[in-house]
């Protein structure tokens, strides 16, 4: 994938709002622990998706800046996979602050975050091109110019 800045942001928001949110809605009830409620898990997981989207705009600015130092001006798919860790860490810290007093279970958060990330990544490296046949030629834009 060879994203432009606008394309990066659009693709992230689009995929989080569709694949990311869809997966979250599906998976959250399974993550309920003995003493918790579905409502509380949804509060945690949906906050995580929302924060990934919001912080993501900032992260994309950073990635775009780093991309300028690559001759190919591309963004290897390996990079899009491993940045899950720094991004996830920031979201984790933020969730801990938001839910101060009753911190979300570590496993619940990370299982949800990493599974959502992987699914979004998988869609971005292939299937999205089927749905949007012009996407790969316009730097990841969802809304055409």
């Amino acid at each position: 994938m060879t994203p432009t800045l606008v394309g990066r942001i659009q693709t992230r928001l689009f995929l989080l709002a569709t694949v990311g949110l869809g997966w979250t809605i599906l998976i959250s009830p399974i993550l309920v622990q003995q003493d918790g409620s579905v409502g509380r898990v949804y509060a945690i997981t949906i906050s995580a998706v929302f924060l990934t989207a919001v912080f993501g705009v900032g992260w994309e600015l950073l990635y775009h800046a780093l991309q300028q130092y690559r001759w190919e001006k591309d963004w290897p798919i390996l990079y899009s996979l491993v940045v899950a860790f720094p991004e996830g860490f920031l979201v984790w810290i933020s969730v801990l602050v938001i839910f101060f007093g009753s911190p979300p279970p570590f496993l619940v958060f990370w299982f949800h975050f990493l599974s959502t990330w992987s699914l979004v990544w998988l869609v971005a490296v292939g299937p999205i091109k089927v749905l949007l046949p012009r996407w790969r030629y316009q730097g990841g834009r969802i809304v055409e110019k």
Binding site: T2, P3, T4, L5, G7, E72, K73, D74, R136, G139
Partner: peptide, 17 residues
């Protein structure tokens, strides 16, 4: 050296734009 005859972004990224 480069992967293809142009940098990758010439086909659909910022260099294409």
């Amino acid at each position: 050296y480069q992967g293809f005859n142009y940098p990758k972004a010439a086909w659909g990224g910022q260099l294409k734009e």
